[in-house]
Amino acid sequence: MIVLGIESSCDETGIALYNSETGALLADQLYSQIELHAQYGGVVPELASRDHVRKIVPLIEQVCAEAVMTLQDIDAVAYTAGPGLIGALLVGACVGRSMAWALDIPSVEIHHMEGHLLAPLLADDKPEFPFLCLLVSGGHTLLVDVQGLGDYTILGDTLDDAAGEAFDKTAKMLGLPYPGGRYIAELAEHGDVTRFKFPRPMMNRPGLDFSFSGLKTFTRLTWEDNQDDDDIEQLKADIAACFQDAVVDTLTKKCLRAIKQTGHTSLVISGGVSANLQLRETLKKMGQKHHFKSYFPDLKYCTDNGAMIAIAGAMRLEQNIPEKETAIRAQPRWSLEQLSPP
């Protein structure tokens, strides 16, 4: 089955073609709106929606050309129906559902976070169900007990800012470009991680929930209290290193707590923050010590992309071909626990 995947939940337009019979990704195109939104320091929803309208059809044409296929060769369409920005979601939903009608093929609505959760299955070294998953991005920080496709239990959630959001806001505070995660990580390489003692939020409490707003406030106060420093650039690097270390330490220790609680021996880490190299190395070392294995998507599939939607759609369609519908839906708020197996 050749599945076309469409991702348009926020500020990336991702299109991919996936062959479920061979497990091969046939073509993959991604357009990022980072330059469009950078001047505003964050995503402007209306601009994002308009840019998806401009890019989505040309990208579909590009993946077909890359795979040497026509639209008639596509067997099904999978598109992100939520969560995300309502206008951006509707662009992908309208195009995906309309293509399915026109081609008389099935279409399937995909949960954006389920796509991220399954993204490591695109790699050669794939996890098997069941496993524990850390979904960590600009909008979400979740620990999920994954028993199978569509069988998810949220063990921990963020009570305020997501980890990726905290990275972006800290970067803006330090005068770094948007999005901030990459720039914080690069700056942290030149910083002294021992200069400041940053808190590890909610580590002294039982449970698996997260909170990053207090850490963000501590970072701001540290920055403001040290403005008379003779070397401002080194101060920025030291704050970046201490901030990143606090976030990574919090995430990894909560993962270990969840591993011990669930008994899983496989940990999947997905979402934009899963590209952070310190997070990857720390979890790999922790897994060696505590006898679990960590799985990550390839770096290019950590951020939003069409490939993860295509494989999620293929997995659902292999188990159940839905009846053709006329409704076009988008759910800006949609819990993973509302999903069910195909």
Rank of each mutant, 00 (worst) to 15 (best):
H111I: 05
G42P: 06
A307H: 07
V136P: 03
D161G: 00
L159A: 09
I2F: 08
G271V: 05
R200P: 03
A119W: 10
E165P: 03
G92Y: 06
A310F: 07
V68Y: 01
H291D: 15
V53T: 09
K253Y: 03
L277R: 15
L208V: 07
R257N: 09
N204C: 00
E21N: 14
S49Q: 14
L159N: 09
E337Q: 15
F210N: 04
A123Y: 11
I328C: 10
T13I: 04
G191M: 08
D28C: 04
T265V: 09
N204A: 07
I2A: 02
N305D: 05
L283Y: 10
F129L: 03
G175R: 12
S8Y: 02
Q338P: 00
A16Y: 03
E21W: 04
D104T: 07
I110S: 07
E66Q: 15
P322Y: 11
I239G: 04
Y183M: 05
H37S: 06
M308L: 06
M173D: 01
L159C: 07
C255I: 15
L36M: 13
Q288A: 10
T262Q: 12
G150P: 11
P206Q: 14
S270Y: 08
L85M: 13
A246W: 05
C10I: 01
D160L: 09
Y79H: 13
P83M: 01
L256M: 13
G138K: 04
A78H: 03
L132Q: 12
V43Q: 06
A119N: 12
M203W: 13
E114P: 10
L336F: 04
C94Y: 09
S213E: 03
V248W: 08
P130T: 06
R205C: 00
